[in-house]
Measured scan of single mutants.
Amino acid sequence: MQRVNMIMAESPGLITICLLGYLLSAECTVFLDHENANKILNRPKRYNSGKLEEFVQGNLERECMEEKCSFEEAREVFENTERTTEFWKQYVDGDQCESNPCLNGGSCKDDINSYECWCPFGFEGKNCELDVTCNIKNGRCEQFCKNSADNKVVCSCTEGYRLAENQKSCEPAVPFPCGRVSVSQTSKLTRAETVFPDVDYVNSTEAETILDNITQSTQSFNDFTRVVGGEDAKPGQFPWQVVLNGKVDAFCGGSIVNEKWIVTAAHCVETGVKITVVAGEHNIEETEHTEQKRNVIRIIPHHNYNAAINKYNHDIALLELDEPLVLNSYVTPICIADKEYTNIFLKFGSGYVSGWGRVFHKGRSALVLQYLRVPLVDRATCLRSTKFTIYNNMFCAGFHEGGRDSCQGDSGGPHVTEVEGTSFLTGIISWGEECAMKGKYGIYTKVSRYVNWIKEKTKLT
């Protein structure tokens, strides 16, 4: 034993070699072989497995989906700052455009905790909710729209109204504003409101030439003092309507412009014939205590009207009353817009006519005020429907199939267009061939041609 100890002390290297040989010859039971080890760690190889990531292109799944990435790591994937920024906006807080917040056709661009709407022409605001041009839906104005110097929408209202708090709607500024039905039992019968379409306001006024200088022999019209197929109006439903009495009662109609003036057809009036105007009328054979009678003290036909040349060209006249009318729910003026808007309103496509005229061709006159909704007829169809001249200051309205029309005794009465609950004068009943005849239409004086003249002559002093 002493000898062994001496050998170990003198030859430590020998001992180490012996131990190493023993270990190498022993069977290893701690580690699995290569094949079995792979069965336990069965993990798919990654895209760049075996390579240094710093030297390969980034992978979106590896960089940002398996674990949260930084902007720089995302930049490695896209290799483009702009594309990385677009991805980053949604990656950080989701897609803010998912709810489609942009209105009126706006395009949404996502941002971090926010979004941006790219608005089409005519709109602005956070969600493109603000109209900035009158060309689109009248700028959301209830009545009139004008573009300011910086191309912003400025709404306005006709006389007797003021802008509401929203700067879009119009509200009454006087007790009985024009064009409004205020009798409670008839307010439910107000005709369907007309909503502004998209309009090209630059070209809204037709490029028409008034044929002022045409000389033409007097034409022989049949029954051209021209509501057939209409309905009984309720008291106060058309408070701007008046009836004219002269040699015979209810020979023509008219509309209240203001307390002192009536507008009617020029062919209705004769110099030297006494005319009485009755406002607030409903049943011409009954006294309903809503009527107001006034005498006409002055007749002003349009300066281009000449019955000797043509009885229905420039067929418009103004009547001055001896005493002002007292405005109330049964006696209310009709609204008159400017030339541009009167023309736009007419193009809405349908209007209402009213009167006490004959209820059928050569038949009896109506006792109760009649009204009828009539569609506008395109000019080409209008011209083809008659052998008589249709001037540019006239328009056609009615039904091709016949059966409904204005008729004798309705002449001078109103053709009105309702705009968001307020009625505007767009025409004056003038003439036609018979009444409600198939293929024939009622012919009306186009008020847009005469609004400046009306307003100039009827100013209240």
Rank of each mutant, 00 (worst) to 15 (best):
M6G: 11
I7P: 11
A9W: 15
P12R: 08
P12K: 10
P12T: 14
T16I: 09
I17W: 11
I17H: 03
L19P: 02
L20Y: 05
C28F: 02
T29M: 14
L32T: 08
A37M: 12
N38L: 09
N38H: 10
P44C: 04
P44K: 04
P44N: 10
Y47H: 14
Y47I: 13
S49Y: 11
S49C: 04
K51Y: 07
E54C: 04
E54P: 10
G58T: 15
G58L: 10
G58W: 06
L60M: 13
L60D: 15
E61V: 06
R62S: 13
M65I: 12
E66M: 05
K68F: 08
V77P: 15
N80G: 13
R83M: 06
F87P: 15
Y91V: 14
D93L: 08
G94K: 11
Q96K: 12
Q96E: 15
E98F: 10
P101V: 04
G105F: 04
G105N: 05
S107T: 14
Y115G: 00
W118G: 01
P120R: 05
F121K: 04
G125M: 00
K126Q: 11
D131Y: 08
N135C: 03
I136G: 06
K137G: 14
C141R: 00
Q143K: 01
K146C: 04
N147D: 09
S148M: 08
V153R: 11
V154D: 09
S156K: 08
C157Y: 01
C157S: 00
T158C: 05
G160D: 08
Y161D: 01
L163M: 05
E165D: 12
Q167I: 05
S169D: 08
A173H: 10
V174E: 09
V174M: 07
P177T: 03
C178K: 01
R180E: 02
V181S: 08
V181G: 11
V181P: 13
V183D: 08
L189A: 12
T190H: 13
F196H: 15
P197E: 08
P197Q: 12
V199L: 07
A207M: 13
T215F: 07
Q216L: 12
S217E: 12
N222M: 11
N222K: 10
N222H: 05
G230H: 11
G230R: 09
D232L: 06
V242E: 01
V243N: 05
N245K: 13
N245H: 14
N245Q: 08
G246E: 05
K247R: 14
V248M: 07
A250D: 06
G254K: 00
G254E: 00
S255H: 02
S255E: 02
S255P: 00
E259R: 06
H267Q: 06
V269W: 04
G272T: 12
I275R: 02
T276G: 06
V278L: 07
G280D: 01
G280M: 02
E281A: 12
N283H: 11
I284N: 07
E288S: 10
R294Y: 01
N295C: 04
V296L: 03
I297V: 10
H302F: 06
A307H: 10
A307M: 11
A307W: 07
I309T: 07
N310G: 07
K311Q: 05
K311S: 06
N313S: 09
H314W: 07
H314I: 01
A317M: 03
L318M: 03
L318D: 00
L321I: 07
E323N: 10
P324M: 04
V326G: 05
N328S: 10
Y330G: 03
Y330R: 09
C335G: 01
A337S: 03
D338K: 05
E340R: 12
I344A: 13
K347G: 13
F348N: 13
G349N: 05
G351Y: 01
S354Q: 10
V359M: 12
K362R: 12
G363K: 14
G363T: 11
G363Y: 08
S365Y: 11
L367T: 13
L369H: 15
L369M: 14
Q370N: 08
Y371V: 11
L372R: 13
V377E: 02
D378Y: 03
C382L: 03
L383I: 10
F388A: 04
N393F: 04
F395A: 01
F395D: 01
G398M: 04
F399T: 13
H400E: 13
G403S: 15
R404L: 15
C407I: 06
D410C: 11
S411F: 15
G412N: 04
G413M: 14
P414V: 11
H415A: 02
V416H: 04
V416L: 05
E418D: 15
E418H: 08
E420H: 07
T422N: 03
S423T: 09
W431V: 14
E433P: 10
A436M: 12
G442V: 13
I443Y: 06
Y444I: 07
T445R: 00
V447G: 01
V447R: 00
V447H: 00
R449I: 05
W453M: 01
K459P: 04
T461P: 14
